[in-house]
Amino acid sequence: MPASRASPSILQAERVSVRFGGLRAVDDVSFRLECGKILGLIGPNGAGKTTLFNALTGYVPLSSGRVTYLGSDVSRSPPFERTRKGMGRTFQIERPFEGLTVLENVLIPAFLRFPGRGDAEAWAGECLERVGLADRRKQLSSELNLARRRRLELAKALAVKPRVLFLDEIMAGLNPPALTEMIEFVLSLTLDGTAILMVEHIMQAVVELSDHIIVLAFGKKIAEGTPEVVTSSPLVIEAYLGGVDDA
């Protein structure tokens, strides 16, 4: 994308690889993410999307390569340090702090930016407002339904005031109206310059949202480009239809 090269890059992956024993789960993947942009990460099951995602956020160690965030190398930083620097994430399988209420769940990441209880609570409330969970603040988080748990995940990720947001399949399992709502919401997040990297299976969401898409298969980047380019690439269609051999 030569046109946008001028805008500041917030996250950069250089030749990132993750190996488990002999298996190359992520193999030599590079990309660059700019402020206010959305990068979609797609690929068939087992392509290494989630592994790459976890490697970028620090939950899985890199075997080689480098991850740079705002110009500093974070390849060896533990997850909590990346969060503190402004890399927020959601979990594919929602992980609310089960014994706590919805508000308390968001309070915990809010403390990172507001050490005092009063300020933290106000900020947590604001985040819940944004995701539309304000009326649920006193409910036990374990009692939320799937769509609301998703939104709670988002509120928690927003509470750390991320400059780059990692969204792991937040659209999966949503019904059509909820999906449309979520797509609009994610789009609104980029207005203040927040960059987003999303792993997603729902093609509609990826195509509508992404500025740039990376396609993974067997850990390798097999295609990238704008949604139009990627969806018409024969390689991608083949990968999704299961035509790719182990080679």
């Binding site: 956020t57 620090g58 939950y59 533990p78 997850p79 909590f80 340090e81 969060t83 503190r84 927020g88 994430r89 979990f91 992980r95 609310p96 702090f97 089960e98 014994g99 706590l100 308390e104 309070l107 915990i108 990441p109 403390f111 990172l112 050490p115 209880r117 933290a120 928690k156 990720a157 509470a159 750390v160």
Partner: peptide
């Protein structure tokens, strides 16, 4: 109990990975 440390401890008890995503060093 009602302050930051109390909630950090509870976050660690409930889920260490999620606690890290809240910026907590478990």
């Amino acid at each position: 109990a009602s302050g930051r440390f109390g909630y950090e401890m509870r976050a660690v008890r409930e889920d260490e990975a999620a606690a890290q995503a809240s910026g907590i060093n478990p």
